[in-house]
Amino acid sequence: MSRLTADNEKIAHEIIGRYPRKRSAMIPLLHLAQEQDGYVANDAMAQIAELVGSTPAEVLGTCSFYEMFKREPVGKYLINVCTNISCQLMGGEELLHHVEHRLGIHHGATTADGMFTIEDVECIAACTEAPCLQVNYRYFHKITNDEVDTLIDEIRAGKRTDDIPPHGTLAKVRQHVPAGHWAGRGGEGLPVIPGQAN
């Protein structure tokens, strides 16, 4: 795998259709690729380049700018512990150490079974709920060490598949505009860029 599946390619085209210029769909399409494979493979970047009318190098340039895109496989569950100021003040670093200790790896690393990757992250906009962390971008506010242990156990036991989808899945609800409702005025009057499909 790594090129988009036929179903995902259809979604890709729907996404592209929402932008006055195809290239604007680059980040959403990278998310789509990551949702499919858990990371963004080179082949996927090459395909996205074709889809949005850019070079693969341009896709790489964009992809590598953003922290969420992983160009190598990571754990199925990405645990992001916030250690920024509000959390630091309320024990964020201690929480990170606990997670590291508990999983036996440092942040930045993945457990041998490929289940967990830990990241030491910047502010995740839950500052009043410190300390906090995210698992695959699902929030856990004011979390204690014991709660972390339980959470990890439950994930390992497959009990959290409902509220925590595998890494790469972002929104489980997608925007979809039914036919006839789309205004489609966004590209009207835009100058055409030669060599680039708008």
């Binding site: 080179n42 970047m45 090459a46 190098a57 790489l60 590598s64």
Partner: peptide, 27 residues
Amino acid sequence: ASDVAGDALIQFTERGNNTQVMTFPDE
């Protein structure tokens, strides 16, 4: 490469202090 030649084959990759000029792997 991008603006004059139209061959956008080298790009900035990564960001901040890790920013570097790079090609796409194997291209």
